[in-house]
């Protein structure tokens, strides 16, 4: 399962690669990383129909995670449409409701509980 992680913090890549080292080694998950919303959209266009799930931060300079979500949900992207999971430090209800309204498939609050995240990812992968 191909997962695109979008976050402006470069160290997120290192963290995911270590947290999911076994899953990556076994080929269960395949991670790609973008450091901004714009970069993520470009990646999606360059790699059509590959990404199953997008894990996106909300607070990013330039295009925010919510804008990326709106693009993903409304732009004519090649099928199948990827699932979008939001990850944010600002876990207030306003942001949550906005994300849900825009069609987010899940809403996680930082700091990330990697055990729970792994569970969710595996559930998605097996269905």
């Amino acid at each position: 399962m191909k997962i695109l992680v979008v976050d402006d913090e470069p160290d997120v890549r290192l963290l995911f690669e270590q947290r999911f080292r076994r899953e990556i080694r076994s080929g269960e998950f395949e991670f790609s990383f973008s450091y901004s919303g714009e970069e993520a959209l470009t990646f999606l266009r360059d790699h059509p129909s590959e990404v199953v799930l997008i894990l996106s931060d909300i607070n990013m300079p330039g295009m925010s995670g919510l804008e990326l979500l709106r693009h993903v949900k409304t732009d004519p992207l090649p099928p199948p449409p990827p699932l979008v999971m939001m990850l944010t430090a600002y876990g207030d209800t306003a942001t949550h409701d906005q994300a849900m309204q825009l069609g987010a498939n899940d809403f996680l609050i930082k700091p990330v509980d990697f055990a729970a995240l792994k569970q969710k990812l595996q559930t998605i992968a097996t269905t």
Partner: peptide, 13 residues
């Protein structure tokens, strides 16, 4: 909060 999350995460991992 951001660097603290990284500290915790890297410590855990």
């Amino acid at each position: 909060q951001n660097p603290l999350n990284f500290v915790n995460n890297f410590a855990d991992v």
